[in-house]
Design a protein around this nucleic acid. Structure first.
Lengths: 123, 123
DNA sequence: GCAATAGTGAAGCACATACTTCACCAATGG
DNA sequence: CCATTGGTGAAGTATGTGCTTCACTATTGC
């Protein structure tokens, strides 16, 4: 069930990871959760830029953040990476992709009706 | 050794996959090998554009191509996806990254304790 | 040979977007 | 209270790059 959704935003995940700064951000957050200021000083960019990047990374479920007081702590969100993994597997074994469409037809209980790219940012 | 190399060009792989057209190209090639003209007509872009994209995809080992006669057949190269998979794993389990050097000395199997949160690593 | 097809190279354009500055608000701490 | 710190919003800039057109070469087929 989540496979379909995961494959859909895998596009957004890849678009997000296309940027080197965001990849560096992911690298930092993979080591430890950090605040916006921490990330900004680590990457030598402004806090505004970090905020924009974090917003993008959150939209595709690569990062989660919560603001306590005036500090926003960002941490890695595994769901984005999961979606990416699914995306890779589907391309590494194309026959799975073909069987997957059959799987969608057989499993219409989840209400997956539009095969088009909805790009629903489930937020 | 190969892991380091794979992790290095994973950056290029992600940069390449950041583009929607190149992702569509990968999707097509995951289904079947195709010529430049085939891909061009499938994506409604010029053959020149496809040629440029294929060059980028080849540079990061996502695509291999060989020219027989006047036709260049492009097919998926698994090495790019492999590198991406390694990249993901390294971020999904950051402690593995930290213990990477120790990994050479100690052949630890599991039971690793993360300093951050205790998310169960079900792998 | 001639025409059509497949692909490549150079050059330019147009749009996207990453980053900045400026201004502002909210929380912390002396 | 005032200063500092952490973060956000708006707006502008500028660099990158995806795609095109034009020109050209090299195969294929009649």
């Amino acid at each position: 069930m989540t496979e379909v959704a995961a494959r859909l935003d895998a596009n957004q995940v890849l678009a997000a990871l296309g940027d080197a700064t965001r990849r560096a951000l992911i690298d930092l957050l993979a080591q430890s959760p950090s605040s916006i200021s921490d990330l900004a000083s680590a990457l030598n960019v402004t806090k505004t830029a970090i905020g924009q990047h974090v917003a993008i990374l959150e939209a595709c479920h690569l990062v989660v953040s919560q603001k306590t007081g005036r500090v926003r702590i960002c941490r890695l969100d595994h769901r984005g990476l999961d979606a990416l993994q699914v995306w890779i597997e589907a391309r590494r074994h194309p026959w799975v992709e073909k069987l997957d469409r059959l799987d969608d037809l057989l499993e219409e209980e989840d209400g997956v009706s539009s095969p088009n790219d909805g790009t629903t940012a489930g937020v």
